[in-house]
Every structure is written in structure tokens, then in C-alpha cells.
Simulated scan of single mutants.
Amino acid sequence: MNADVTALSVEPPPDGAPAILTYFPDAARSVAEMVSTVLRELENAAIDLFPTWLPGAEGIDGPGGAGVRAARALAMRLASTSHHFGPFLADLAELSLAAPPRGTTRSGPEATRFGAEARATRFGAEARAAGLARVLASSFGRREAAILMQVPEGLTPFEEEVFVAGCEWLADRGGFGVWLTGPPLATVDRVEAMTLRVPGEADGLGREAPPLPEGGGPLRYPAVAGIPHPASKAERALEAALASCSWARGRAWNQTYQSHALANPIRVDLLWQEERVVVEIDGHEHRASLKFAADRHRDVQLQLDGYAVLRFTNDQVLTDTEAVAGQVRRFLHGRRTPTFEGSQRV
């Protein structure tokens, strides 16, 4: 069973579960190389998620002026009342402010600072791993973080040993939960194995090759309630278009919805609760059979509960954002307009 299937079966995770990040590694030549690559991707995720892990930093929009000093002060204050390590958190906050938004680049001195100097760290791998585990867990309001690691196909015995040893390092030194999924290990026998069955696997759906995460990187992570997913260009583009529109009031990004107490909770991309309108923005992974079937099941359940579901692809949003926003506006207007009988349409 691949990592996409496993992650889908626990999204959103139950109360008390760790924050779950999914990682698709390549074969590494050494444990140090694997650890370095994973830590770099985890650091990128923490930067993307800023300022969710630093309360009070929401109004700081860049490194200019007093921005860096304010962010570092907030980080040290948070560390004084929590389990975070202050100097690491302050450096990560400064790095986050200097980083360009995902999918963009900086030019001039800022590019040099972010691309070379800002990547240098005065902390060793162990301190970085432990610090990132705490930061990523707190980003999602969880006490711990876990990495769902896809076992690469076709590993040689040496590469398999490196892979497992790297996972053990992340668990022992960083404090991450590390779960392996995918093809079974052929030579390393010290990892406890269990079988997890999810709906659709019996039909072969769980054996599909997992699509790459949006943006081409090996790491994916769940959305944070209340904001567009930082790794989704489409969600960020649509929010930018809606931010100045008075008709878009009442919207909420990435909310968890549960039909009834015994139903599995689901996460919706964009919700207007009062009008009972859900907007979903689909990447290429939604064309895979398991995800497609899960989407149809979600749509039916939402519709039975009185919600309308509008679906757009990433390409639609990115190539003609105004047209997508216009369609949403017209639909919301229809839901808000009283019927001829004088009652509110729902």
C-alpha cells in the first residue's frame, strides 16, 4: 500500500494523533545524505507554514524595518513558556521572513541572503531535527509529529540499510514518529511490520503509483484550518482574488466537517457555512481512482446534508482566477437570494 493511500485513510487524523507529513524519498548514498535531505524539506515546510507556529507574528510581512527583531522577540518569548528551543526558533523565524513565497524567487541582496547565508545554520542535525519536530507539530495543534515514509522501489541491500538507518535516526534523534509504507523491506528485518487494510485496496485502488506532491517536491503535509494550503498555488491565488471582495465574506479555508457523530470527518478546501457552499480545488492526484472515488463519496454526503459542492482544477484557478471567482460569486448570490415565496434558499 502506498503512502497516498495510507495518508488518505487518516486525513484528518483523530484527536490525539500526531501531525502527519508524507515523504517520498529517493535512494541515498549515506545516512548523512538522507538525513540532510529530509531536514531541508522539513525546514521548507516550516517556512511555508510560518507564522502558524509563531503566535503574534501574523502581522509581520517581511524582514524589512523591525520585522526580524519583532519575530525573534516573539520566538524567544514563546520558547520561555513552552518546550521550544529559543535560539533555534528565533533563527527559523528570521529565515521564514527572508524566504520568498513558494513558487517565487527573490532578486538582488535578498536572494543571496536566502540562498546562501540564511541556509547556513549554527545548529547541528540533532538540534534541527528536534526543533523542526516541535515546530511542525505545533503548526497543526498537535503534541507530536510523524513522517509517513514511502519505501522507494528497487532498493539494493545497501540502499535499504541506509534508508532504514536514516529513519531510525529521525526517530531516535529527532523525536519523530516514523512509519514506513509501500513495498516490503527485502533484507532489513528489524522493523516491525503490520497490515493495514483501507477501503478500495481490495479492488486494486491502493496499488496505484502515488503522484508527486504539488510543486514537485518529495514532502507533502496537511492543510492548516483557516488559511489556504501554503503549498497550493491555486488556493493562494484564489484567496488573493477573494480577499478584496465584499461578497466573499464568511469564507473559511480548510475546515473539518463531520456529517454526524458516527461519520468520518472530512476536510473541505473552502467553505461558506451559512450558504452551505463548498469549493474544492483539485490537483492532478484527484484523477487517481482511489482519490476520485473518495471525492465522489464526499460530494454525495455533503449534498445529502444540504451543501452544494463546486469543483475546479488547479489549472482552472491558475489560468483564469477571475473567471473562477466570478462563478463562485454568482453561485453564492443565488444561495443568498430569497425565493419567490420569501424564504431563504439553502
Rank of each mutant, 00 (worst) to 15 (best):
230 P>M: 03
140 F>H: 15
178 V>W: 12
59 G>R: 08
130 A>Y: 05
17 A>N: 05
311 R>A: 07
158 F>W: 08
331 F>P: 00
72 R>M: 12
317 V>G: 10
284 H>Q: 05
326 G>L: 13
152 P>A: 13
29 R>N: 04
261 A>Q: 13
325 A>W: 07
339 T>K: 15
337 T>S: 13
248 A>G: 02
202 A>M: 08
334 G>P: 02
60 I>W: 09
190 R>G: 00
87 P>Y: 13
156 T>K: 04
208 E>A: 14
173 R>Q: 14
249 R>L: 07
25 P>V: 07
75 A>H: 10
289 S>I: 01
209 A>Q: 10
41 E>I: 05
345 R>V: 09
90 A>K: 09
257 Y>S: 00
213 P>I: 00
62 G>R: 04
263 A>F: 06
249 R>E: 10
21 L>K: 03
263 A>E: 12
73 A>D: 11
52 T>W: 01
205 L>C: 04
170 L>E: 00
137 A>E: 09
268 V>P: 01
167 C>V: 06
69 R>Q: 10
160 E>D: 05
227 I>M: 10
63 P>W: 02
109 P>F: 15
91 D>W: 05
72 R>V: 11
156 T>V: 14
177 G>H: 14
294 A>N: 07
54 L>F: 03
332 L>C: 05
310 L>K: 04
129 A>H: 02
254 N>Y: 06
77 R>M: 06
95 L>N: 03
106 R>S: 15
162 V>G: 04
125 A>D: 04
343 S>P: 00
109 P>L: 13
69 R>C: 01
278 V>F: 11
175 G>V: 13
30 S>N: 09
230 P>A: 05
61 D>L: 12
44 N>T: 07
93 A>M: 04
233 K>Q: 12
21 L>C: 03
285 E>H: 11
243 A>M: 01
322 E>F: 00
316 Q>D: 13
202 A>I: 06
140 F>A: 12
202 A>Q: 12
166 G>W: 03
298 R>M: 12
92 L>N: 05
29 R>G: 13
295 D>Y: 14
207 R>M: 08
